[in-house]
Design a protein around this nucleic acid. Structure first.
Lengths: 188, 188, 188, 188
DNA sequence: TATGAATGAGACTTCATTCAT
DNA sequence: AATGAATGAAGTCTCATTCAT
């Protein structure tokens, strides 16, 4: 019954992700979104009550996906686990940038957005805990150098994800190179 | 001389920089700006013809400052020069983020903004050339490992600047630690 | 016979009356209406072509009902007739308020609404004529005081209907008390 | 300094009152308002942050005015005081209707509107207290008939204000006639 | 017949920019 | 030179109504 949908919810969230990354949270408009979908602007409101809910749902989906993959990582060897995680994060390089915008979402208008945001924060914490755990174990294993404070090593590792893949290598290769650079250093 | 000075051009650009970094290009409004200055919103138009010119002038000033420092670096020892440059860039960590927003400036309204943007692009190219030059020389000196493609090493180096200084170390110390991590790697 | 009956026309008009009284004509939406019925919003259009027709039909039904009762009143004793009419009007206290909204209905879209509205106006006039007739006869009978202009007595009588029944008395009792107050006055 | 205003705050509130009475709260639009003022719609936002604040400010001004006059009434003779109050209320016949709309104002968006609404409720209570006080004293003085419950007398009195002045008498005369009708009754 | 989906018109609100004092 | 006031363009959102299943 009813008409056929002009765009699916998945298409909507995919496009939202693309546009938020391209234009930033404040540069993201529903007009822009509707121009990149097949339907009219007002149709979007059939699915989400307001702009905030759209962006929150989009971010939730991204981080939920990362969380799922990260939870499946075998943590028995810390360094190996870190490399695997790096691959996951590089695959979803947008994560960081999106999370940076998450704090801009005004949740006073929408309980749905507030709920999504809470999920996002919980997931974020879970991911950070996992990394902390692995880093600490790696340090106890003496796998990491001791002359650099752990927060610096972690910070640089974290920041690695954002490195633009200008050579357009497959993410698996790209991630492995980044890990090699991070672990082994640049000097010969 | 007429009315009392409300705010200087420097104050205006400083506040613009702060607010653009805080809110992103699209989240930056003249209303916001005037709220953080002592005068009225319309007074801003005594200095700049429109929003685009303000942001362009702000970015130009930032990159001109970096360019000046970077030009003064002694390039005789490539690795040493890179470390010095890293310090400069870390000092002006906002540079990257601001440059990312530069492309959003719509120059069709303002020749002044267009001129500033051109300057910015030239300066950006100059800085990139300097880095390429140094990296190439470092590689020829066999100071850098050969098993990782040069673009990867450069990319990671570049990305280093954005690492948030969560320990709030003095920038000189922070920059040195970043360099050590980058050059020597994380493993013990 | 096809799908299950969702809501009857009577339910639709009853709910319309309730909601128009609660929210006023401009605060009455089809969305609101459908939320208080069992079916979908679009199903309403199986019964009426547009919002105006619904409200017009609702008002017509109300005034037709009052008209029917008022026509049956025995007018031989003017004062007695007025008391009986008061009971009828108090029973349908909403009438006044609804008639006040009738003028807001835009009939340019719908001939059906225009026809209903015409009926409403005719009925309204009929009711007013009945009251005028009774009042005039009552005055000729010297049943009413002469020092107050007749329009004032009529106006106060008319306005009586809207008095909120805050003690929640049965309408018959409530109406009788109102009539006593009107006819006998407040002083001891 | 600055341009000359196109309309004053008083003009704005006067017109708001007129239009809210004419169209009801839900039928009142800023577009409508601006069409009845000299300026553009957006200019209104220089003075009030949103629609709710405008209506709240309008109602506050009306009730504050009534409160001021009602407070000045000499209450030594209850019936005389009631007659004087009736005149005041008839003069501001809109009060009741406006107060009915007051509950529709959504204050979640605006603290200013919430504050005004609180004032309105306090003032409303003060006025109701004054009437209750006078009615009770009038009853103790045996000035009012005992066979009708006091709430009915009060209710009818209250409702008197809304009687449309169809003969267009000066309000003083009109009020006196209403009072005479109420106190003495309709019968000869 | 009933309805989910689509949509344009219209209302609210913000903001860059201009104007006039 | 500084600014309060004015304004139109643009974005958010709601709703009556239509469409197609």
């Amino acid at each position: 019954m009813g008409r056929k949908q002009t765009f699916t919810e998945t298409e909507l969230l995919d496009m939202t992700k693309k546009l938020v990354l391209e234009h930033g949270y404040d540069g993201f408009h529903l007009k822009l979104l509707s121009q990149h979908l097949s339907g009219a602007r007002s149709t979007i409101y059939q699915y989400y009550a307001n702009k905030e809910e759209i962006v929150a749902a989009c971010m939730k989906r991204v981080i939920a996906n990362v969380l799922e993959h990260a939870s499946a990582v075998d943590e028995s060897d810390p360094l190996k686990a870190l490399e695997e995680l790096l691959l996951i994060y590089v695959e979803e390089a947008a994560l960081h940038q999106l999370l940076g915008d998450a704090s801009k979402i005004n949740t006073s208008n929408s309980t749905a957005a507030a709920r999504d945001l809470e999920f996002i924060e919980d997931a974020h914490q879970t991911l950070k805990n996992q990394l902390s755990r692995l880093f600490e174990r790696a340090q106890q294993d003496k796998s990491l150098r001791q002359d650099i404070p752990l927060p610096v090593l972690i910070g640089v590792f974290f920041n690695l994800f954002n490195t633009p893949n200008m050579m357009n290598l497959p993410t698996a290769d790209w991630g492995r190179l980044l890990f090699q650079t991070w672990i082994g250093g640049a000097k010969s």
